[in-house]
Design a protein around this nucleic acid. Structure first.
Lengths: 164, 164
DNA sequence: TCGAGATTGTTTGGATACGAACAATATAGA
DNA sequence: TCTATATTGTTCGTATCCAAACAATCTCGA
């Protein structure tokens, strides 16, 4: 997951390759560590919380958004989950096949599909989410409590700048 | 990409769903924003830098690692890129098919496969990486310069805690 | 009323993603 | 030397993932 090379070693190599260019190593480090952290968090949660339920990260997020916003429109779910509508179609089909979620046509707008959880889906999320949050707490431990809000704010600022 | 609901609205909904549980909303916010940011950064770069070259994010990262560490061992590439060796096999096949990278057996250890860039791959990366770094700089803009190092450090600490 | 344009979910085709099983190679100890 | 064990990259099966094309539905103006 994490590369075996040190940051300094990598930077030296990059600088050597691109000695004639001006590079912002700090920006590089932010983006690089952003992805390492996201990947590590995802894999860790998939292994320790989701595996026993046979859920992928994406499937869990889709269930979670549906759980919170039920009945949820698919475009809303895709937006919150950060996946394309094409991907959501497949994930929803899988969740329906497993009896965790349900699709239904909107009576007000024939184009829309509304998603709800089945009782089995509700029960699964009720048991799963507390475990999920406990893992979140554990993973954020190395960041001093007084800086976690700031960390979230900076990440939010980056997202806002891009999606703005 | 980014959900249309505000943080407060989401938290209120979650609190309503889980009023009987103790939840750490700050840890939730960190993980949630970590993924929103990573997803936003990835999609933005794929659209604005990688699309014209027909590269996926993963394919680009594999090319980048190879470019820096050439000749690179596949286990090394997979580790740095944060993907499994099975995934790397497929990505390398795609890159070979497109004439951007090349596989060769190690003469010192018959189990190892060494990867190098083709001249076309070299040329592609020489033109692509500066654009990539300029996007990185732009995306990190909303974080005050004095706090970018701290941001990278916190992200690194989370990864280190998980990967132990 | 009616039709051009916009919006939505699905399908299609191809790439990515991973665990598990596998074959090839290397290494260590008897 | 020989063999049990470990390591590495590939294959296999299945689930994601997305852009583009598509069909169904809605909206709005003439």
């Amino acid at each position: 997951m994490t590369g075996s090379h040190t940051l300094a070693e990598t930077e030296a190599r990059v600088a050597n390759r691109l000695s004639h260019m001006e590079l912002d190593f700090e920006a590089m480090a932010v983006v690089s560590n952003l992805f390492r952290a996201a990947s590590a968090v995802r894999n860790y949660v998939e292994r320790n919380v989701l595996l026993e339920s046979g859920l992928s990260w994406t499937a869990f997020v889709v269930l979670w958004v549906t759980w919170i916003w039920e009945p949820a429109e698919t475009r809303e779910i895709a937006g919150e989950a950060g996946i394309s509508k094409a991907t959501l179609t497949g994930v929803l089909s899988t969740l329906e096949k497993r009896g965790l979620a349900q699709r239904s046509r909107s009576s007000e707008d024939g184009r829309l599909v509304l998603v709800t959880l089945t009782p089995a889906g509700e029960e699964l999320m009720s048991g799963l989410f507390p475990k999920f949050n406990r893992q979140e707490i554990e993973m954020v431990t190395p960041v001093p409590a007084g800086q976690r809000g700031s960390l979230a704010d900076m990440l939010r600022a980056i997202t806002a700048k891009i999606d703005g």
